[in-house]
């Protein structure tokens, strides 16, 4: 609460800058008044949904009323009831328990993919941006080749080649994911490295590694945080897509995408098996996108 007030106060004093803050991730509208409350709402809502998601993932073994792998073949395709809150899948497994354990898969894929992509992307981007010359040219040409693959095609191809497994999905998503961060970091470093304080650091005898890690990265953290928030959302959807296509995690692992794909054969008999995993994905991804939009506005990151 206290924090909110100071934020609001600073905003009022900010004048012209404040007008930029409103509007769901869009460039400022001339008519938008300062709207810190709307912004805070977005962050609160996003964080609240994500908190639920985290609790579901971390405490799934404690919260799940049933074993997510336990078969109850006679009760297959049962609709939601008092015993089984979200019903049972074709093998009679409790859908609510599987959704909770599915959150673990999504969380793990989202975080590990973005961590690996960020690490590789930052390294490549920093080397390219800081060294310039032919190294920069070469690295950016490699980036161009990766970017030539539309959408998630490269991830589909890699997942197909490596074979379905959780580890391979993370590899496939990371191979696709690092490119965006590399371009972002390179672009930012090209701007920042010409600034006076970098020259000052260099004059004081700081080496390239120190300049990059101590002086450049802290100044480009904001766009990276925004990008990583969207990155987690993207990784979760892409994992679910791959699992939906049968290229992701192997059954009986409860991935939301695989659950949805299973349910599709019983669309008329048991529509909840398709609807519910999709709603789970939708909520988490929507919360991350909302948070990403709000952070982008708050940190004054230019939208792409």
């Amino acid at each position: 609460m206290n924090d909110e007030k100071t934020e609001g106060g600073r905003r009022e004093a900010g004048g012209e800058r404040d007008k930029k803050k409103f509007s769901f991730g869009f460039p400022p509208s001339p008519l938008s008044p300062p709207a810190s409350r709307v912004l805070d709402k977005r962050i609160t809502l996003g964080l609240a949904v994500l908190a639920l998601f985290l609790i579901a993932a971390l405490f799934a073994p404690l919260l799940a009323p049933y074993d997510p792998f336990e078969l109850q073949l006679k009760e297959g395709l049962a609709l939601p009831s008092a015993e089984h809150l979200l019903g049972q899948d074709k093998l009679g497994r409790d859908l609510f328990s599987r959704i909770l354990f599915g959150a673990q898969i999504s969380l793990w894929v989202g975080l590990s993919t973005v961590t690996i992509s960020l690490a590789v992307g930052c390294l490549v981007g920093a080397v390219a941006g800081f060294s310039g010359g032919w190294i920069d040219d070469l690295l950016m040409r490699v980036v161009d080749i990766f970017l030539a693959f539309p959408g998630i095609l490269l991830a589909i191809a890699l997942a197909a080649i490596l074979g379905p497994s959780l580890r391979n999905v993370i590899i496939a998503l990371s191979v696709m994911g690092w490119v965006g961060y590399a371009r972002l970091v390179r672009g930012q470093i090209l701007v920042v490295r010409e600034l006076d304080y970098v020259a000052a650091a260099r004059a004081l005898g700081a080496g390239p590694f120190r300049i990059v890690t101590r002086h450049l990265f802290p100044n480009i953290a904001a766009p990276l945080i925004v990008e990583a928030t969207f990155g987690i959302a993207g990784a979760i959807v892409t994992e679910a897509s791959l699992s939906f296509l049968g290229l992701g995690v192997v059954p009986p692992t409860p991935s939301w995408g695989a659950m949805l794909s299973d349910g599709r054969s019983f669309l008329l008999l048991a529509p909840h098996l398709t609807a519910i995993p999709g709603i789970a994905i939708l909520w988490v991804v929507m919360a991350l996108n909302l948070l990403g939009d709000a952070l982008r506005d708050r940190m004054d990151v230019k939208s792409r």
Partner: peptide, 9 residues
């Protein structure tokens, strides 16, 4: 945010 493989079915 909506996955296409959810909307389609």
């Amino acid at each position: 945010s909506m996955p296409t493989f959810w909307l389609g079915p």
